[in-house]
Design a protein around this nucleic acid. Structure first.
Lengths: 156, 156
DNA sequence: CTTGAAATAATAGAGAA
DNA sequence: TTCTCTATTATTTCAAG
């Protein structure tokens, strides 16, 4: 694994491989091989290299939260008291399963989080009974995502 | 595929399978089978059911943008003129590859987007030469993510 | 859900362009 | 180096119980 900020050079074949797998992590290597016209072993070797470079950070099954009854997504900007250190707050946020992302941000807030809840009532409970209860949280601003209209990774 | 808001019932075995695959989409079904003590074919059958239910929305290879030289992530709140319809703006945003997410939100802004850029200068260019140039965009507020401290999917 | 068989894929090693 | 070819092992997938 290279140091996290070191750029890696990838060629057109690498890009083709990555585009296939970013779209479907379970696509068989041999199928990709047939598509782009080199041997499966070559793809395999390239994938090992890409993995060693740190560029490949694993793979995930994507599940549709709506089917599980989770239909309310929101961003919440959190103001922390000066005395409250960010890492301690993050540790508390980690314990709340509805918190999917947490960013240490410039601007108004100390922290910006993304939460996923079943409905607005559930969101209200998470806000009042979980997030507001964290010591050092002084105020929050909530933005409900009525629709997520774009969702993608970096373009290769 | 069930209608998008219909809940699906999954049992403990489904949950175990999903937890494995949400963490590593390429984990062999037989390996999961050995882990949880049922046959590979049973897992296969369950996965087909979960896929048919719409709960499984595919799989993705995750790539580490830092290794590609993309180190600046930011959220941008966008104010739209009343005359500007959201779908038209979204169509323009889709053309900007640095825009990874786009949410139609309640609250101050009409739109909240997530962008990924190489550095702050690149972010500035995307802001000034791409986003601000979209017709109907009156003002923006940018929040740079200094660190993403949590990043996960819904807990099963 | 299981078994068992057939088709397909992953992977390692040797050697050529 | 990066590829191809080949052989071995492992996995996927299907049909039947």
């Amino acid at each position: 694994m290279k140091s996290d900020n070191e750029k890696v050079k990838i060629d057109g074949i690498d890009k083709k491989i990555l585009r296939f797998l970013m779209d479907d992590a379970r696509k068989p290597v041999l199928e990709i091989a047939r598509n782009i016209g080199i041997s499966g072993a070559a793809i395999h070797q390239r994938l090992r290299k890409l993995e060693a470079s740190g560029l490949l950070a694993g793979s995930k099954f994507i599940i549709n939260p709506k089917i599980m009854g989770y239909t309310t997504m929101a961003y919440i900007g959190i103001y922390l008291d000066k005395a409250m250190s960010n890492p301690i707050a993050v540790k508390q946020l980690e314990k709340i399963p509805e918190v999917l992302e947490c960013h240490y941000t410039t601007g108004n807030w100390s922290i910006l989080i993304k939460v996923l809840c079943r409905d607005n009532e559930h969101l209200m409970q998470v806000l009042n009974k979980e997030i507001q209860q964290i010591e050092g949280v002084s105020r929050t601003e909530t933005f409900i995502s009525l629709a997520q209209q774009i969702d993608r990774q970096i373009t290769i």
